[in-house]
Design a protein around this nucleic acid. Sequence first.
DNA 1: CCGGCGGTAGAAAGGGCTTGCCATACAATC
DNA 2: GATTGTATGGCAAGCCCTTTCTACCGCCGG
Lengths: 343, 343
Amino acid sequence: MTVTLADVAVHAGVSPATVSRVLNGNYPVATGTRQRVLDAVRTLNYVVNAHARALAVNTSDVLGVLVNNVSDPFFALMAGAVQREAAREDLLAMIGNTGGSPVEELRYIRLLLRQRVRAIVLTGGHRDDADYLAELAELVRHAVASDTRVVFCGRPPVPGCPAITLDFDNRRGAQALTRYVLTVGHRRIGYITGPAGHSTTHARLHGHTDALAERGFSVDEDLVVSGTFDRESGWEAATRLLSAPEPPTAIIAANDTVALGVLAAAREAGIAVPAGLSVAGFDDLPFSMDAYPALTTVRLPLVAAGQRAGRIALGEEPLAPGTVATVRTELIVRDSVSGPGER
Amino acid sequence: MTVTLADVAVHAGVSPATVSRVLNGNYPVATGTRQRVLDAVRTLNYVVNAHARALAVNTSDVLGVLVNNVSDPFFALMAGAVQREAAREDLLAMIGNTGGSPVEELRYIRLLLRQRVRAIVLTGGHRDDADYLAELAELVRHAVASDTRVVFCGRPPVPGCPAITLDFDNRRGAQALTRYVLTVGHRRIGYITGPAGHSTTHARLHGHTDALAERGFSVDEDLVVSGTFDRESGWEAATRLLSAPEPPTAIIAANDTVALGVLAAAREAGIAVPAGLSVAGFDDLPFSMDAYPALTTVRLPLVAAGQRAGRIALGEEPLAPGTVATVRTELIVRDSVSGPGER
DNA sequence: CCGGCGGTAGAAAGGGCTTGCCATACAATC
DNA sequence: GATTGTATGGCAAGCCCTTTCTACCGCCGG
């Protein structure tokens, strides 16, 4: 049915070994012979069987990337960058959507391990669940033991987990942002968090409270409402905050997508931004500069991080398992935040 | 080094065949035996070798998706949907960024064919290049001959190419949009195309000229400027159009991303939208509703299409190779287009 | 008491490729 | 002209599963 290397060998009048060597170019083959083999390959339309090859050499040309959701630019930007790095080395990238579910994530890792992937890149924060983290660590140890590099991209390290970590400095980024909002004069600042029990949620919220504490302010529980990192939850949370007896003069969202929901809610409530309400996001996704008003936010170098994660995954940046690197963030001041008094 | 099925067999005191059968559950195995095997698998931390399996059964649990760029929501939305469908069947999805390059696309298809993927989904339009299309058709024929389904998602059929096609009705969508812009009163309508020689570019431009012709208007060459489907090109094209001696009163962009660039250009030029200039996009990407003003555009059911493409790829919707289905589009009227006179 | 059967398990033959080791042929060297 | 070397090619043993075919066992019905 399908053409095999042996068929090519017969057609070219050589042994399978020779065909293999021509194809891999890792052994001297006389020019004439090579040509005959190449011709045979062409006329027979031969396509190597990657599985047979992977089986023989015990490694594959594939790299796995796990994201919450590729349709979310936050993840797509990282995944795309990893993918491009992989492509440079002629590797294929398998991308899995975990939907943020620990169970799905573990399932995918197992699936990828079966594929004997060269490396696995895990993006986005993790759920703070002891059982899950223990199992994750176990799997990563297993992976690393079988020469599969594991890279965390934009997620904090996990104790006992020999992955190479590239974490975003969410806490300091959030701190800088809140500090800025305080500096322009806001005192009643609403904060919309990400989902509970999520590392990114914690880090950003901590940064926020750090900044408040630093100026001697305490956290007003009524101003902190929890969401789910999506536009919808931003809309709901903002609507709630704005209808309170004493509404905030500024709202900081867990991320840009949530901030979009906040802007929509403000628009519907007839509140001008930033005149009547300041709004800030986090991530600096591409659309943020085109929001109205353009979002003041914290930039995460998603592409650069993905790229670096890719390079690490390929082993081009020799880091020992367990290494932790922190990626800096940058405050991006645009138009959605102004002083509470200004109009 | 790594644990093999044979090791498990020894540990459980059974033959490899039995272990395989326990793992695949496609053959009766006594409960006691099964349990022993399962225990052995657990204690040894056994992970099947997908390659050996694929080699033995001559097919893999993988599906390939080719996109121009995962970071572009247009593609990410489709790819994500395909991926989710694949996940339902426990398949992995390999995603490749072609960057819109025919060469890369062909390269990826070959790579995927090596992997003996179950199916390949190609998204986005194609380059109108005879050589490329011929080679593509050749590859697809080859793929189909070896039981690899090929699905075109959002791209027109290619003659002699036994792929299953799910094409967007770009032409009619564009026609409806231009018709609408004409209806509200515009007569000088600028049009920013996608890259030359691209099927989507053609289809949308045709729709535009169809609508003009239908009302008895001819195309003013000066008002049609070509771009590249990205924000930057929208900005440049719009800047050019707006600085002309007799600028258009409306600009229709090849897609929403380009429209964002147009909006930015208008803002910088101090032109209010839609009072001073109407702007329309295409695709209805998520961010379009949050642009300012909210974009009037044409909605493409990207997720639904990707989902369907996934189902077809999985063989759940039995369609013969060569089948062509057209996906309807929908005009979405929002705020970025108004009559030329209105303020 | 025996042929036969349902229920389980094993032996072994692939599946397509790589690669260490050996064989050959001819050129080069003394 | 014998010998050592170099360039090239083949042999065959894996790599780790799946699956057909065969074997075995205890049991039933005749």
